[in-house]
Computed example of a mutant assay.
Amino acid sequence: MNTPIKGRGATGRIPGRFETLTTHAVDDGWQAEDGEEFAPRALRTEVRSETARRIISRNTSPDVGFDRSVNPYRGCEHGCSYCFARPTHAYLNLSPGLDFETRLFAKTNAAELLRRELSRPGYVPRPIALGINTDAYQPIERKLGITRQLIEVLHETRHPFSLITKNALIERDIDLLAPLAEQHLVSVHFSVTTLDPHLSARLEPRASAPHARLRAMRRLHEAGIPVGVMVAPVIPWINDAELEAVLEAARDAGARSAGYVLLRLPYEVAPLFRDWLQAHHPQRAEHVMSTLGQLRGGKDYDSRFGKRMRGEGVYAQLLSRRFALASRRLGFNASREQWPWLDCSRFVPPVPPKKASPQGELF
């Protein structure tokens, strides 16, 4: 632990909270320079196919602006050290650490499932958030194309949806997104944590660099697709000083909506982030965690609705005020017209998939 791994966000494979057997690395004295035989193996990304049973997840959280989402992948190769979704790998008996970013699962039947769920009698359309738990445009999407397949179903059915990503790969799908935007059926937010490429490479090692995200934002905006920015997460004493600069850069790239989220450290994310701090910012580690504790009632995390995204206390109030002032100056969130609503009235249910007959086909 506490040793940076090139191209990865986590510094080790911490056990999940459901593990009954854990292992601990021990230095036996053999060094890699003593011979290739003892050198650590390179960490490669492993992708497994998953046949999902359902694809639309629902929630009742008042902290988010959607009640349903679709995630084409489990795990995320971006490797963001702070990712709130890391604990979900514990349910698979895998580590929320390195396993989360190196052992991925692709829901290869996602488009088929989405078509089936949208065709159910009585289905009432509401905007779907695409790629919330893990990024729908993470690097493996370039080869697998599951996100594009999902968008094709949403395009066919005129179903409204939103996207949030930190990968410029979304530019590939402008041909689908632009016509949908003309009908008020899609909106896109980019997560921009910092404008410093060196800090970004440490925080989110396999995500697109900040300038690439801003370039993609500009290209989508020029194609008529409404784009916004999420400064997420804001980390005290790491990237919080950049709040106004990120908002201004996004505004110049075409963003018309903005938001922010304070760093969240649920379950295994807290020890993972502590390790990241010790590996990259050991001098600030204690100060960062102390400030987070002040924001969360003395704890690493407070899961209460209304508090978990913003925190409370003097620092939280100052951050909220800074965001409000910058947003007003830059014209973010000023009117409904600036951020188009998503139109649910255009939805056309797909033809239900034909059930296979146990007797087979006669002709």
Rank of each mutant, 00 (worst) to 15 (best):
R296G: 03
Y91N: 05
L177C: 05
P226G: 00
G65K: 05
V153E: 09
R346H: 13
A85P: 00
K354L: 13
P197K: 06
S57P: 06
V348S: 14
A253N: 00
A136H: 09
V269R: 01
V234L: 14
P266Q: 11
R41P: 10
R86A: 02
W30M: 12
G360C: 07
A181H: 00
S327T: 05
R321A: 15
Q283K: 11
T134S: 14
D175Q: 00
W276K: 10
Q138C: 00
K107L: 05
E222G: 08
H155M: 00
N133I: 13
A212W: 04
A129W: 10
V188S: 04
R206D: 01
A52S: 13
G79K: 04
S119K: 10
A136G: 00
L265E: 10
P87M: 10
A10W: 00
P233W: 08
L130T: 02
L118N: 12
F332R: 09
L195A: 02
K143Y: 00
K143Q: 14
R44V: 11
R206T: 04
Y260W: 15
Q294P: 07
E171P: 01
Q283Y: 05
N167C: 07
K166E: 08
V269Y: 09
R329S: 11
D67K: 07
L130P: 05
V234H: 04
P121L: 09
L263N: 06
L325E: 14
E286G: 13
S61P: 05
R148N: 06
Y73L: 09
T102Y: 03
G360K: 01
